[in-house]
Design a protein around this nucleic acid. Structure first.
Length: 602
RNA sequence: GGGGGUGUAGCUCAGUGGUCAGAGUGCCUGCCUGUCACGCAGGAAGCCGCGGGUUCAAGUCCCGUCAUCCCCGCCA
């Protein structure tokens, strides 16, 4: 074939192309042969088109067409024509037409693949490690092309939006300095001075603040971040975020950018419903109403505080929890009255998994003291029971789930998990809705029981509210920070803060965190010095691109939205990394390997 | 670090301690001119994850181990 280069893509041909001569390049998606009549579904990134070889039209091509097996790479020259009446395929974009081959060149053959790319139903079940090992084949699936395209469009839309808002995209280093706070660092040994290490950035946090000192005023970056922590379905060690920082702004200015960008990108790329403006909750309000700082607000079922009522009851479990400074709170489970004894036990175990000592339940047939069934009702007067049912807004067939614990944190954690579980079971977590909200006013610090010290809730450069400065000396747990999260459907999707730019406040924060002068200099000397040369008031945020894509695609597994993901434990079965290196390389780096005891035993 | 699930043909999965090495699909061969999950016929294909143990007998039961997924912890 003289000229095999494509003139047009497979997936874009329509009836209006009928009569035109085309050259197509692509892969054999499927072949159907009748011996003297061969159909080849030719696939490229844009889609499929049916190629026909008919012995009555092109007898010289029949043998070659029959030899074109799955995933062979072809160039096909031919004429676009309408399909015969009655043979159109409405399920195919190109189903009205076909390409009558005039010439076929097999550009490359292909061995049998480890899985069948063209069988989408089966591909959904194929072992994920195998798919990732052969990711370059997995990515041939139309579903994966669609993911890559959406991801491209999302990132492009973000870049355009940020650029239009006057932000500059600026790259920051991948080799940076280890900071012991936060997640575990990935380390890179420094060849010229054994013992020294770079770290891969957990985020470009310090660089973007330095860019503010530099006067860049509005920075953004589609930034790769690295955290050496255990994986989850929505967490990988290497991920991408939109990183943003702005000067001469207050919290509200940053939130406007977050919300504006999110609305712009999501509404352009997704048909999902997205209530706007995004509701706002303070951290305290979110904890009180939903039990966590990332509420799924697609459904109500808010937590009900029964502490006061419970304090008047005779139930010792409730009383002792309250006497120890705890809480008694409840959540409704619509339809939960129908649960079997076994299912109730399972619900109880669900709660215990998150630290609850037990689960109190009230089966509501009718929301009256006589219309309920519960092991704890005997500890309450009729009046109190009615009051409880009223507080919970109990409906017939509800199961009222009550958690009591000396630690309000446990009550909140268990009930928020339970609330989400109930939302799932009741079908309240509508996948066609993206319910964003913004949570503000986080605590500046949290008491760490293990280390017996105050830990930064966000990071050490987070600006407390100025009128909370007195709490530094009285009750640091009361200090609220100018710190905010973007939440979507019950999942954290981004966070940020206004930063400290005043040395006096920065010192107070460091003192509170127990970071002494020497440590300050050692870890943060460079940024503190920078701040001394005229740092503007500034703040910013970062949002996860991968999680945004998960939400747009209804994909619970983060690896599905990443071209080349790593499996659990950071293993990449495709490249077979991490891997050993030559002794010479180790020697050059001044490293020697201490084998784990496990492998020594072998 | 802890808990749970899974591991049998290339892929997806069945499989009561005893004709048990199975199905669908893919692959190979042959036939087939309007298919599009084409059809029909035939065929090849397995360390039943790995190592121990119990038993007359183990894919099946027990112990260990490895891999993988999900969850708890962890992730400023």
């Amino acid at each position: 074939m003289a000229n095999w280069k494509r003139t047009v893509n497979c997936g874009v041909l329509t009836a209006s192309d009928s009569g035109s001569e085309v050259v197509l390049n692509g892969w054999v998606h499927r072949q159907r042969t009748f011996g003297d009549l061969v159909f080849i579904d030719l696939r490229d990134r844009t889609g499929l088109v049916q190629v026909v070889v008919d012995a009555k039209e092109a007898p010289e091509l029949v043998t070659k067409a029959n030899a074109c097996k799955s995933e062979f790479v072809l160039s096909v020259r031919g004429a676009v024509r309408r399909r015969r009446e009655g043979t159109e395929n409405a399920q195919l974009n190109t189903g009205e037409i076909e390409v009558a081959a005039a010439d076929i060149e097999i550009l490359n053959s292909a061995r049998n693949l480890p899985f069948t790319v063209s069988d989408e139903e089966n591909m959904r079940l194929v072992d994920e490690t195998l798919r990732v090992k052969f990711r370059y084949l997995d990515l041939r699936r139309p579903k994966m092309y669609a993911m890559l395209e959406l991801r491209h469009n999302a990132v492009k839309r973000i870049r355009d939006y940020m650029s239009n808002q006057g932000f500059l995209e600026i790259e920051t280093p991948i080799f940076t300095k280890s900071t012991p706070e936060g997640a575990r660092d990935y380390l890179v040994p420094y060849r010229l001075e054994p013992g020294l290490f770079y770290a891969l950035p957990q985020s470009p946090q310090q660089y973007k603040q330095l860019l503010m000192v530099a006067g860049c005023e509005r920075y953004f970056q589609i930034a790769r971040c690295f955290r050496d922590e255990a994986q989850r379905a929505d967490r990988v060690p290497e991920f991408t975020q939109l990183d943003v920082e702005m000067s001469f702004v207050e919290q509200e200015d940053v939130l406007q950018v977050i919300e504006g960008m999110t609305i712009d990108v999501v509404s352009a790329l997704s048909p999902k419903k997205m209530p706007t403006p995004f509701p706002r909750f303070s951290y305290d309000e979110s904890m009180r109403r939903f039990g966590n700082d990332k509420p799924d607000i697609r459904f109500a079922l808010e937590l009900v505080d029964l502490s006061e009522l419970a304090s008047q009851s005779e139930f010792s479990v409730f009383r002792s929890a309250l006497d120890a400074g705890g809480q008694v709170k409840a959540v409704r489970y619509p339809g939960g009255a129908a649960l079997s004894r076994k299912e109730q036990d399972e619900l109880q175990n669900f709660c215990k998994e998150f630290g609850a000592k037990g689960l109190g339940t009230i089966i509501v047939h009718e929301p009256t003291p006589t219309g309920i069934k519960s092991a704890i009702s005997k500890f309450f007067s009729e009046e109190q029971l009615q009051q409880l049912l009223n507080l919970c807004e109990a409906q017939p067939n509800d199961l009222i789930c009550i958690i009591a614990d000396p630690k309000p944190k446990v009550v909140a954690n268990v009930l928020s998990r339970l609330r989400n579980e109930i939302g799932t079971r009741c079908g309240f977590r509508d996948p066609s809705v993206l319910a964003f909200c913004i949570v503000t006013d986080f605590p500046l610090v949290q008491w760490d029981e293990e280390t017996q010290r105050w830990d930064a809730e966000h990071h050490p450069f987070t600006m407390p509210y100025e009128d909370h400065l007195p709490y530094f000396d009285t009750d640091p747990s009361k200090i609220r920070a100018q710190c905010y999260d973007l939440v979507c459907n019950g999942q954290e999707s981004g966070s940020g803060s206004i930063r400290v730019h005043r040395p006096d406040i920065q010192s107070k924060v460091f003192d509170l965190l127990g970071i002494d002068r020497e440590t300050q200099q050692q870890r943060f000397g460079h940024i503190l010095e920078a701040f001394s040369y005229g740092a503007p008031p500034h703040g910013g945020f970062a949002t996860g691109i991968d999680r945004l894509l998960m939400n747009l695609l209804d994909e619970p597994n983060i690896r599905e939205v990443i071209a080349f993901p790593k499996m659990g434990l950071g293993y990449d079965p495709m490249m077979d990394s991490p891997s050993t290196v030559d002794d010479a390389q180790l020697k050059e780096l001044g490293l020697s390997i201490i084998k784990k005891e496990k492998s020594q035993a072998k």
